[in-house]
Design a protein around this nucleic acid. Structure first.
Lengths: 194, 194
DNA sequence: CTGATTATTTAACATTTGTAAAAGGATAAG
DNA sequence: CTTATCCTTTTACAAATGTTAAATAATCAG
């Protein structure tokens, strides 16, 4: 049985987005499970249908996929970040993307179908979820702008500024593909900054 | 007074995403207005807060913004496409983006605050809107992947395949910035394809 | 139709980024 | 400690894209 204390950070994360009544909170609480994944292990493999919404309770993870034999990092999730493979969850297709723990990581998982079936009983939960997607959408639009119209050097500088600890915690090669460049190119950029 | 026939395409567009009861449809219907904009005129200027959700009934439009004095096209909307400046609508900040008609265009507009206030009475409308955002989100994630990991030539080829008539209807310079490259570069790509 | 304006292409050159291979550092297992 | 492995940097060269300017081509207003 999960101790309520284990979920405090997650539930308060949700409450900040959309206040929830005790019964709605309880309904979400009852769907949560904890999953511990060791460093460099995959929580979800490529090719599985994504049916779970994850939240990083402790640790660090990434979503990545394969492109011409190379791993491409799409997203990093730190403590208190959601991690959702939207392109599978919302389309029902198998995901081409994997979720990997980059440190020993504890995830909170919620089965998506069970969560979605709460929507009819608790419109406030559907509202919560709508707001989460809105935020993710705005974030993605802004990220696209950054990728499309800034140089790799600017993108790196911006990333370092936004998430300084990312550089310490994540191998360079993962950061490079997240920025849309090669590892060699990123190394060159770092050399030119010094 | 708007004739119901004028809104058939829009309402059936919505119904395909989420079936709606007659009273919910009527509620949406009563919020709609028609806006005709001449070619090359702006429906919304840069700097305004975005408080309206638009749908292209006839014609063609784009969202663009300024980057170092140059116009950058973010999105093209054809007949029966929604056009929403999400980054302003969902954050309340003034939009840095303009909406411009690229042909004589008729928009259907819905005031966002009035639409959102229907959510409490009609959870199905909130659901409709959630699904719309989900679709937009998935679309944007896929587009980002395309931009980040395909060459400009591949991106152009893909665009031509997906929307062949886009090439005929839209000036090259707008397409170039949509693809994230310069006009000169796109012209070169076209020459190399022939 | 004509001139003016705008859109597109071409050319020459600079810069950025990619590719492949090797060298240097860091880390983990025995 | 030593070796093996993995990560990062460096080097040399190739390819892609940007920049600037000029040359065509297309479009629009009178």
């Amino acid at each position: 049985m999960i101790q309520p204390a284990e979920l405090v950070s997650f539930l308060s994360f949700l409450q900040k987005i959309q206040p929830l009544t005790p019964s709605a909170l309880e309904a979400i609480y009852s769907l949560c499970s904890l999953i511990a994944v060791r460093k460099n292990q995959n929580l979800q493999e490529i090719g599985m249908r994504c049916k779970t919404i994850y939240f990083v309770k402790e640790g660090l993870a990434r979503i990545f996929y394969l492109k011409g034999g190379n791993e491409v990092t799409e997203y990093f999730a730190f403590e208190n970040d959601l991690i959702i493979r939207a392109e599978s969850l919302f389309t029902g297709k198998p995901s081409l993307k994997a979720i990997q723990a980059l440190e020993d990581t504890v995830f909170i998982g919620i089965p998506a179908d069970q969560l979605f079936s709460l929507f009819d009983t608790f419109p406030q939960i559907e509202r919560l979820f709508r707001k989460i997607i809105e935020q993710a959408y705005v974030h993605t639009v802004n990220r696209m702008e950054t990728i499309q119209f800034h140089s790799a050097e600017e993108r790196y500088a911006q990333l370092v500024e936004e998430k300084p600890n990312l550089i310490q915690r994540i191998p360079l090669k993962y950061i490079a593909s997240y920025l849309g460049i090669t590892q060699v190119s990123l190394s060159r950029i770092r050399a030119s900054i010094r």
